[in-house]
Structures are given as structure tokens and as C-alpha cells.
């Protein structure tokens, strides 16, 4: 098991990449990413330690509100092969 600190930059980069690949407009992407990041940071406020699967679940749930395709791709990105 490895420990690493949460990086909002990486999350934003990953979501923007997936979003571009799915062909979502840039304006919508920026809006979705900002809202998801805000929710995730709020969720993180009272937590010292989280697991990767917790983070993925929360990000996935937030993404589901705005784009089901983006949420699906984010949740399944390591389950394709």
C-alpha cells in the first residue's frame, strides 16, 4: 500500500482529458470540473486520510450529476483491460 497526497491539479487534468476525449464542449468541461472540484474539496475538509476508492466514488457521484458519460469513463478508467 502506498501513500500519496491528493492533488487537485491531477484530478482537473484527468477530468479535462476525459472530457475532451468524449467531445464535451470546453465551457461545459470547465464548469463541470470547477463544480466537482468544489464538492470534493468540501468533502475533504474534515478528513485527514482517504482511500483512492473513496475519492473515486465521490468524484464519480458528483460527475454523475452533470455528465453520465464522463462519470462512467472516470469510474471505469482502470477496468478496461
Amino acid at each position: 500500500m502506498t501513500r500519496k497526497s491528493f492533488s487537485p491539479e491531477n484530478l482537473v487534468k484527468e477530468l479535462k482529458h476525459d472530457s475532451k476525449s468524449l467531445g464535451l464542449p470546453e465551457n461545459s468541461t470547465n464548469l463541470i470540473v470547477a463544480r466537482v472540484l468544489e464538492s470534493v474539496l468540501t468533502w475533504l475538509e474534515n478528513r485527514d486520510i482517504i482511500t483512492t476508492s473513496d475519492l473515486e466514488r465521490v468524484v464519480g457521484c458528483e460527475l454523475e450529476k452533470y455528465s453520465s458519460d464522463l462519470a462512467f469513463v472516470y469510474q471505469n478508467r482502470n477496468k478496461i483491460i
Binding site: 468524449l22 467531445g23 458519460d69 464522463l70 462512467f72 471505469n76 478496461i80
Partner: peptide, 11 residues
């Protein structure tokens, strides 16, 4: 079709 469509179909 995008990754989400194809992956859903595969699943």
C-alpha cells in the same frame, strides 16, 4: 461513438 458508449456495450 465514444469510449463510454463502446465500454458500456462491451460490459
Amino acid at each position: 461513438k465514444n469510449l463510454a458508449d463502446v465500454q458500456r456495450w462491451r460490459l
